[in-house]
Design a protein around this nucleic acid. Structure first.
Lengths: 337, 337
DNA sequence: TTGAAAGCGCTAACAG
DNA sequence: CTGTTAGCGCTTTCAA
């Protein structure tokens, strides 16, 4: 009845076979006579035997556990990603050890080493940018590492992303197409590969292609949060030449932007038009509903985990650097065409 | 240089000591001569030795890993809880294996067994209600289990919660105090211990204490989501005798409620007053800002994990059934007194 | 203060 | 189809 301290050896004795046979039954090895299999299975049930994964891991050098390093699981964006990872992991019989890094280089390195010490079979990493030290550690890793929603910055690491530069271009372009000759850009720190560099590059390219100048003033850097979006827009509203179109780097910031506009007595989309980024659930939880770039977080997580399983199984891999499609979901924060 | 396949034995040879001594150094055992310690440490650094936690786990029967079972990590509520758990876990050198159950009894049982198979040192469980089968498994668990934001339904399980019945009472009472003789109640499935039973009980008690009758019609059951809150309120608005005060079981539903009201051309709080529950970040991400019951999710997670560490360390425990304080945060979805 | 040796529970050849 | 036998890398007595 007890399910603990019962070992494979106990089962072997109870069933009158060797532990090797029990191991075969437990692992679904076909080379076991049906009669024997049944005998063993009965003994297992009777004793309530549960294989010890730690012992198995030591003997087989596989733990069926993968590490997941995420900046902050309480961020809706990463939570969605994590869910995609976990679902596919479960599908392939893996478990997830989850760790929050707060995007701190030290915590990232420390977490990585802890996970490797725990002998995970692979790692999925999410982070704002890849610090050199980290990449050094990655290179020394005995197990494969896949990046999710994180650019590989030229390093030879498998990664799953969308084309952030193009997405920002599309969003900005859409705003320009609505007749704006200035577009405000509110996003995260510029040092961040995706939210800073890439989105900024797309924004600038859209401006350039439209023959519009880039005004330093039209860009405000926050930290992704609602509060920082609100604050940034409040600041922008104080200017006489405030842009009437805003592209926000994340949905959360976009909500802040919209509320700042509304709090100041203006209307979205009549006075101001706003486009967000990510299409988190927040996008429809506001009035007007938010037009936003669709980044399929769940899918990115799922595809990243699937990619990792392929690497672990030595399956053939077409492309290690996966770029998922993006699009813009039109809602009411933009005027009808 | 390489950090893998280097074993304690290699270090021992390199340092000219026995593996027992290396083990002592690695584990900070004080009974090692400083000279020896240094010699070993140097060898460790030179070889890039990283202890194998799996082997250690097998030998010591401790994995410094705890399992966390959560209905859905992509739900902002549980993501916050998980963050609290993880932070305290890290503080005490534990890692977290995270699994989503989708509140399915089968998945819960399966996950539990997988975690026990992986020899976790303890488990933190979150779920809508404790199914009998699950409790049976809990009883057989060789490691301690702590419930977080989950009622122990009379079973003798350590748990961390707030007083949900009283919280619902307080919210309803506050609405009644604002002059309403009817209060709409929109929450999750009644089978759920917390969101159904407890909150319902508090709601009814507040009504009773105020001498108000309970109208079956005034209660609508959804599924916690924004969409279900929106839909429920739309339905309620079609009635001639629609209550002008609404208590929503979760913030997300409350946002849906407010938007349904606004979409119908009414004002919050002038025409309708709304109170939510949880005080997730959503509460301030809406206009008017949401008055809501503060349930400290992060703290519940943190305290649950701390409680687990106490049990694991056999520290003295004052109270196994922890009830954290709650309060109502007044914001603009309620009229000024 | 240090070393020798016996496991922890399981997998994986290798025989038979 | 089944059993024997080494380990996997580490902790933990027990002696010295």
């Amino acid at each position: 009845m007890n399910s603990n301290n019962v070992t494979i050896y106990d089962v072997a004795r109870e069933a009158g076979v060797s532990m090797a046979t029990v191991s075969r039954v437990v692992n679904g090895n076909p080379n076991v006579k049906p009669t024997t299999r049944k005998k063993v299975q009965d003994a297992i049930d009777r004793l309530g035997y549960r294989p010890n994964a730690v012992a198995r891991g030591l003997a087989s050098k596989k733990t069926t556990t993968v590490g997941v390093i995420v900046p902050d699981i309480s961020n809706i964006f990463f939570a969605d990603l994590a869910r995609g990872i976990e679902d596919v992991a479960t599908m392939y019989k893996y478990n997830i050890i989850l760790g929050n890094s707060d995007s701190s280089r030290d915590k990232e390195v420390h977490l990585l080493n802890t996970l490797l010490g725990k002998q995970v079979d692979g790692i999925i990493f999410m982070g704002g940018r890849l610090h050199e030290d980290l990449v050094e550690e990655f290179k020394k890793s005995p197990v494969p590492i896949v990046l999710a929603a994180t650019l590989n910055q030229g390093y030879d690491l498998p990664a799953v992303n969308i084309d952030y530069e193009q997405a920002a271009y599309d969003a900005t372009h859409m705003l320009i197409n609505h007749g704006h000759d200035r577009v405000g850009f509110i996003t995260g720190p510029l040092e961040q590969q995706i939210n800073g560099e890439k989105k900024f590059a797309g924004y600038r390219r859209a401006l350039e292609d439209a023959g519009l100048p880039f005004h330093e003033n039209d860009m405000i850097l926050g930290n992704y949060t609602y509060a920082s979006g609100l604050e940034a827009m409040q600041k922008m509203l104080q200017r006489d030449d405030c842009p009437k179109a805003i592209f926000a780097g994340t949905d959360e910031m976009a909500l802040g932007v919209i509320h700042a506009i509304q709090d100041a007595g203006y209307s979205v989309p009549n006075d101001f038009e706003v486009v967000g980024h990510d299409n988190t659930r927040l996008a429809t939880m506001i009035r007007p509903k938010l037009t936003t770039v669709v980044q399929p977080m769940y899918d990115i997580g799922a595809v990243a985990m699937r990619l990792l399983t392929k690497i672990l199984n030595a399956e053939e891999i077409e492309e290690k650097n996966v770029v998922l499609p993006h699009r813009i979901e039109r809602r009411d924060s933009l005027r009808q065409d």
